[in-house]
Design a protein around this nucleic acid. Structure first.
Lengths: 190, 190
DNA sequence: TCTATCATGTAACCAGTTACATGATTTT
DNA sequence: AAAATCATGTAACTGGTTACATGATAGA
């Protein structure tokens, strides 16, 4: 229960809705399809969520085979409940925005603890890296291989990147205006 | 160690760098300052990270007092190591963008599992809520109470919101173009 | 004075990460 | 044939969330 926590569970449901697989295969397939760009997971966490989905009755053990002397593989398939949950979960994610906590946002809320001059320097570094990231993301987003539909997430990411770049540029400018007050505050307690 | 995981730790260091506090006070102060908009935490998790920071030597027990019959309160203060870590951690966060995993991005990477018509409907719902959220965020971002520097995180959030709104609008348009292929794929397996 | 809420903390549970294990295949 | 990597999984640890506990004050 409470399965709606780890997005990896959603991905597993989605893949198993196409055909049954064993966990290792899931892991490999997810990675091959580049899903590790949108969903955080490791080899180990795949086994974990498979366990969870199993307990929740959303997937079921289909068969256990052994091939040569390789370890046993357990193949899992999605259940009707699993299909329903896949749809419901996705609908919820698409329809209802949730409050997010990007790390940069957290840092911004505490940034006054740094001296304004170092902040400016750091923001310039950040800009460089953001621009690099933008280039590689743009290349991905402009693909057309299977179908652009499967790259729409990169388009989204690109939009976020551009917004962040614009914000950082603007922020640097405003720091110039605020510098006296901000720097004064720092000299006062150190 | 490996303290650089939970952003709440950073916030605690930042607050303790101003004055010593006990965990409950930290929790209350964080919430009063609206830091729960940028950092995810609960009452319980504050005690947890305080424990971690203590083990890592970044904060230290300062005194233990008892007032009336209230439970004992342990007051913690930041150590020199803690101050160093606060600066280093913040510098890293500001200077180096990390790969993020927004939930909507994950959903987008799997959205083909939904029928295009329901996706459009859901995206319209999402747009409405995004616009509401935009209004309240804009109000916050335009404040000037202590100093705009302390609201810069809301400005950032506003930029992200606008980017997402633009993306969703555009996505709806493109679904119209893609609908035939996408819908066909769905009829084929169901 | 009863009830609600505040103040403060702990304990138990669940989720996630990391490290390890081991036979099979491929490369050098 | 030695070394590296693939295929497959488990176990141990660490982190995070939730639920509970209990006296104090404030409101009805």
């Amino acid at each position: 229960m409470s399965s709606r926590k780890n997005l990896l569970g959603l991905a597993v449901l989605a893949y198993l809705s196409q055909r049954p697989m064993h966990p290792y295969e899931l892991s490999k397939t997810l990675r091959e399809h580049g899903d590790d760009r949108s969903i955080k997971f490791t080899h180990g966490s795949v086994y974990m969520v498979v366990e969870q989905l199993l307990k929740a009755g959303l997937i079921a053990e289909q068969e256990t085979t052994r091939e040569g002397q390789r370890p046993e593989r357990t193949v899992y398939g999605i259940t009707p409940d699993g299909r329903a949950e896949l749809q419901a979960w996705l609908r919820d994610l698409v329809g209802v925005p949730r409050h997010e906590y990007p790390a940069f946002g957290s840092a911004l809320s505490l940034v006054s603890a740094l001296h304004p001059d170092v902040v400016v320097e750091l923001l310039r570094e950040r800009l460089e890296r953001l621009r690099e990231e933008r280039v590689t993301t743009a290349k991905l987003a402009e693909g057309t291989e299977p179908h652009p539909l499967f790259l729409v997430e990169e388009v989204y990411r690109l939009g976020l990147l551009d917004a962040e770049i614009a914000f950082v540029e603007r922020f640097i400018e405003r720091i110039a205006e605020w510098r006296p007050m901000w720097a004064g505050y720092h000299e006062q307690n150190s």
